[in-house]
Nucleic acid binder design. Structure first.
Lengths: 316, 316
DNA sequence: GACGGGCAATAGGTTTTTTCTATAGCGTTG
DNA sequence: CAACGCTATAGAAAAAACCTATTGCCCGTC
């Protein structure tokens, strides 16, 4: 099957006649006759019912027509998009971020996009990772950030950074004899009143997994699926929590929270940038992807987002 | 742009080399080189960055690749669907019906489909016409039935029948001096306690329009968006209503309701079968469409669905 | 710093495909 | 029943796709 053949076929369907279609296309009628014959032979089924007054579509012909129109529209769109890719990037780019990443990344990324890509509207969507994964799979967002990519199929995945989870406390409520400079074992943390998100949350699932693997029983006094509120509660000394440093960077900088590394075990999670293959790549989304890497590079080098760099690689 | 070119381009992208791609495809390398050159010339933009160790995609190349994969998948699907169209119709057909139509049509249609198309699963969805219109526009149902098609664009519309709205009453609660055989004027109906669906309902919008156009003020004592419940209330003499005869055919047959024509004005509405151009036509949906026409023909000839026939025509 | 290997680009000839002209066949219409 | 309008077929011409041979280029290696 061939785009030219599809174009011809649509013309025939619309004109209801080989001769008329030939005239419209600008080729001789016998040529069209041949094309249809080839198409019918390739598909093994009749597409046109010939009559002395023209042709009508068979049922199969109607089905091919509806596909052909879609395909031709897609080809047209492809051509336009590729041509436009030489011009300045423009349009909307939707980017799904888990809240802990959004906390540190959204603002600097939005500002960078506004400055460097004036015609691009960035739509940063903060959501739980489960939603982001779903949106990526259905192709309704261009880019997303995820921690766990093991369940993904056919996605283009680019590792960004590896984060380590830290213990957080109010400064004047520090529960250990050791100083916050020293790592604390998870077993000690587990004895405290913890404020964590619910099990539907990726972070919580990960902490539970590490705890179980080390025979540690967590004591969760409050479950709350809102990062800001968790931090507020911890800052008011209503409990303690475990987070990636980036997620609490704001309150740590203001001295409202203190953080300590956790050892036995050290809990690390990689952060991935994921692109859906169902949403066609746009120039704007490529540029936002590039700026994301650049901004993260900048944030890590300035130690605002602490993490272990990962070599750039792309999986298609 | 050509399907063969797109196929070649995807192979090049996947192999990262013209020579390797040429080997995989089974043509000589210079031929591929030419193809890419043509493609780049047609699109007016470079797609590949050539190096002595192979080629890499430019940004435009990445964009074309993502489109190309979708287009090739669509072509593959088209070929499969057309081939399968020769076989027995199979698969799911989703069909959205307003409740008044569903009342009379769903059961006989479902039975006919089950008998004549054993491999087809009919999914009859009863919903308010606003929803059906939305689903058709987004292509999430194959077929739908609507009363008002003035707002539709690019749809394939086939008129089915023209219904006339009737007045309904409980038999022993008949409010007029004249017999139910005689038409009653809308102005008289308007003086009674009416039970009608809310304004979001297509039927109600239509009745309101006719009433306003004739300077009649309707007295609606109960608004209820559930056809069965409206009929029950009227049968219990809790009020009166206005419906298409098909919608109340069951209770009229059982003698629980009586109907009378309405004149001054006569209220007529056409009923259309609508097909979305975004859902590709399947053999199964074509057959369900055919059976729908056949069942309606049967229902009207047996006077179960009273209405004025409309000449068959199709708008593409 | 020259050499060879691997790659893509170019040139020119060959094959295949597409298109054209001419014409036949066929049903409908006047 | 002849003329018209349509599609199908045949064979020649034009266009395209493709092939072989070769060049040029960059990189790594000797």
């Amino acid at each position: 099957m061939d785009i030219k053949q599809l174009r011809y076929f649509v013309a025939i369907a619309e004109e209801g006649s080989l001769s008329a279609a030939a005239g419209r296309i600008g080729i001789a009628q016998p040529s069209l006759s041949q094309h249809v014959k080839n198409l019918e032979q390739q598909l093994g089924i009749d597409l046109l019912a010939r009559s002395p007054r023209g042709v009508t579509l068979t049922q199969s012909g109607v089905i091919l027509l509806s596909h052909a129109r879609r395909i031709l529209a897609a080809v047209e769109q492809a051509s336009e998009d590729v041509r436009a890719s030489g011009l300045e990037p423009r349009g909307e780019v939707s980017f799904g971020l888990p809240s802990s990443v959004s906390m540190v990344l959204s603002v600097p990324l939005a500002e960078t996009v506004r400055l460097e890509l004036p015609e691009v509207r960035l739509r940063a969507i903060e959501a739980m990772s489960g939603f982001i994964q779903g949106w990526l799979e259905e192709g309704s967002i261009d880019l997303g950030i995820l921690y766990d990519v093991s369940a993904l199929k056919h996605m283009q995945i680019r590792p960004l950074i590896t984060e380590e989870l830290f213990f957080f406390s109010a400064p004047d409520h520090w529960p250990f004899k050791s100083s916050p400079d020293r790592p604390v074992p998870l077993a000690e943390v587990a004895k405290l009143d913890l404020i964590l998100p619910s099990r539907s949350h990726g972070l919580r699932a990960m902490i539970d997994r590490f705890a179980r693997a080390n025979g540690i029983d967590l004591r969760v006094s409050i479950e709350m699926d809102a990062l800001t509120q968790i931090k507020t509660l911890v800052a008011r000394a209503s409990g303690y929590t475990i987070l990636a440093p980036a997620a609490a960077q704001d309150l740590v900088a203001r001295g409202e929270l203190v953080a300590a590394r956790i050892d036995e075990p050290v809990m690390r999670r990689p952060v991935y940038l994921v692109r859906s293959p169902d949403a066609t790549v746009t120039r704007a989304s490529q540029e936002v992807e590039r700026l994301t890497l650049q901004v993260i590079q900048d944030l890590t080098s300035r130690n605002i987002w602490r993490g272990y760099a990962i070599n750039e690689e792309t999986r298609v």
